[in-house]
């Protein structure tokens, strides 16, 4: 049997060089440029692959959470305990922060919106603008950032340190699946908490806006009339899409922080983990918000 001829190192170098190199000096120059381009492309490809890697992990983990949450044997007492503990931490302890955020948003946005609409003689559009701007756009972003800052970053860092210290491996050695015991209950707790905090934050923003506007004399009609304007400005789709936006945002903040924390490398330190966790979290919050706004 005759095997294929193995190219020598010289032949290998010629293959990489452009075919019509006029001289040895030019060939070396072209070879170096070609090598630089290849290195650049390799670096670019590696970086792109690493970015795609986490996206694919997120997609798989997201489907995994949905699928596992539907299985009866997932909800063992340890998983239920973790779900309750996380929900209490995120929604219970975050409620005051969400209300304060809503009040500040109400002062900043709602009162201004009512004032300028009144000035333009478009008071009848107040409800529609408030639903569009505050409830549908601003509150989900604020709640997402609030959850990311208050709890998500802590989760990401704690799980990252746990993984680098080998505790996640020790957990697996005990027969405790980190996905089942950490990712599933915490992601679902973030999902429920996001909806809860979002509704409270929206109500606080609207009520504060009304109170500020009433006190300053911009509006004169009653609270019920104001709320009626808001409710009638909402389309039937809004009743589905606004809660869905809160839910999806909470789901991705929870999933991103837990999966991100569990997939850190041994080389990672707190200095590399925290910026990455925050960057990714913000990306999820903004991406979900923009995608919902563009789609519906």
């Amino acid at each position: 049997m005759t095997g294929a001829q193995i190219p020598s190192p010289e032949q290998g170098r010629n293959i990489s060089a452009p075919p019509d190199a006029p001289s040895a000096g030019s060939a070396t120059l072209y070879g170096n440029i070609w090598l630089s381009i290849r290195r650049f492309l390799a670096t670019l490809g590696r970086h792109t692959r690493s970015l795609l890697h986490f996206t694919l992990v997120m997609m798989g983990a997201g489907w995994g959470v949905v699928r596992e949450s539907c299985r009866k044997d997932t909800w063992r007492r340890t998983v239920r305990y973790e779900f309750r503990r996380t929900l209490s931490d995120v929604a219970g302890r975050g409620l005051l922060s969400a209300l304060v955020t809503g009040v500040l948003a109400g002062i900043a946005v709602v009162s201004q919106a009512i004032y300028w609409l009144g000035l333009a003689g478009m008071e009848e559009m107040t409800g529609s603008v408030l639903v569009t701007v505050v409830v549908r756009e601003i509150t989900p972003i604020l709640v997402g950032i609030l959850m990311l800052g208050r709890n998500g970053m802590l989760t990401f860092t704690a799980l990252g340190l746990q993984t680098t210290e080998g505790q996640t491996r020790a957990m697996i050695a005990e027969g405790l699946d980190p996905f089942l015991l950490i990712v599933v209950p915490r992601t679902l707790a973030y999902t429920v908490a996001s909806f809860t905090l979002g509704i409270f934050c929206s109500v606080a923003a609207l009520l504060t806006g009304y109170i500020i506007s009433r006190v300053t004399g911009v509006v004169s009609h009653s609270l019920l009339s104001f709320l009626y304007d808001v409710v009638t400005a909402m389309t039937p789709a809004d009743y589905l899409l606004i809660p869905l936006k809160f839910v999806v945002e909470g789901f991705f903040v929870g999933l991103g922080c837990t999966v991100g924390g569990l997939t850190v490398t041994p080389e990672d330190t707190i200095q590399t983990m925290m910026p990455r966790g925050f960057g990714r979290g913000m990306l999820f919050v903004m991406a979900v918000s923009v995608l919902f706004s563009l789609s519906f």
């Binding site: 704690a158 020790a170 405790l176």
Partner: peptide, 24 residues
């Protein structure tokens, strides 16, 4: 499968100082 492996590992006790001790 992964669930069966977890269940079986639940039948193994390990004395290791660097075990799973979550701080929360």
């Amino acid at each position: 499968g992964s669930r069966q492996m977890d269940a079986l590992r639940g039948r193994i006790g390990r004395v290791a100082l660097s075990g799973y001790w979550p701080e929360q």
